[in-house]
């Protein structure tokens, strides 16, 4: 069936099976492989993307459910090859090691800062509890999100 989406600001049309998961559409059809799959059960958050400005786990969203929506993936977070403050601070604070959880973690953090521009450490830790990281022990991720919040001046 036909599915039309706006991905990272570009209108795209796809012909996909009704059961196609959004994450597979993004990765295999749209070629945006920055969104990762790690648990297929919406527990780990590696597949997090923004759907109409809300962080969703794209491994448990059907592509058809996203019909007509605006999707932002990690590739589209910052325009023109620039870095979003979250990306900058993940780099600065060593908020990643293997990098597999990172795109989802950054987009989850984006939503957290959208809702809470100046979060406390505890709010950050709870805010990313839907995203698993096996490498970092989270501390540098928390530091990165805190630093990004400061850089963004408490507002987006």
């Amino acid at each position: 069936m036909n599915i039309s989406l706006c991905i990272n600001g570009q209108s795209r049309a796809f012909d996909a099976e009704p059961r196609t998961l959004l994450v597979h559409l993004l990765r295999d059809e749209a070629g945006l492989t920055g969104t990762h799959i790690a648990c297929e059960t919406s527990v780990c958050g590696a597949c997090t993307v923004l759907l109409d400005g809300k962080a969703v786990k794209s491994c448990t969203v059907l592509a058809v459910q996203a019909e007509g929506s605006e999707i932002t993936t990690i590739e589209g977070l910052a325009p023109g090859g620039k870095l979003h403050p979250l990306q900058e601070q993940f780099w600065e604070k060593h908020g990643l090691q293997c990098g597999y959880c990172t795109p989802g973690m950054i987009l989850a953090a984006w939503q957290l800062l959208e809702r809470r521009p100046d979060p406390s450490e505890e709010e950050i830790r709870h805010g990313i509890e839907g995203n698993l990281c096996r490498c970092t022990g989270y501390q540098h991720i928390v530091d990165a999100i805190q630093a990004a919040a400061a850089q963004m001046g408490g507002k987006r």
Binding site: L32, G34, E75, F90, W91, H94, L96, G99, Y100
Partner: peptide, 21 residues
């Protein structure tokens, strides 16, 4: 020193096995 491999990882441009098509 901050890592030199990070730019590709934080922008979704790194390539893991499943990213090769």
């Amino acid at each position: 020193i901050k890592r030199r491999d990070d730019p590709r990882l934080i922008q979704g441009r790194a390539r893991y096995v499943d990213d090769f098509q």
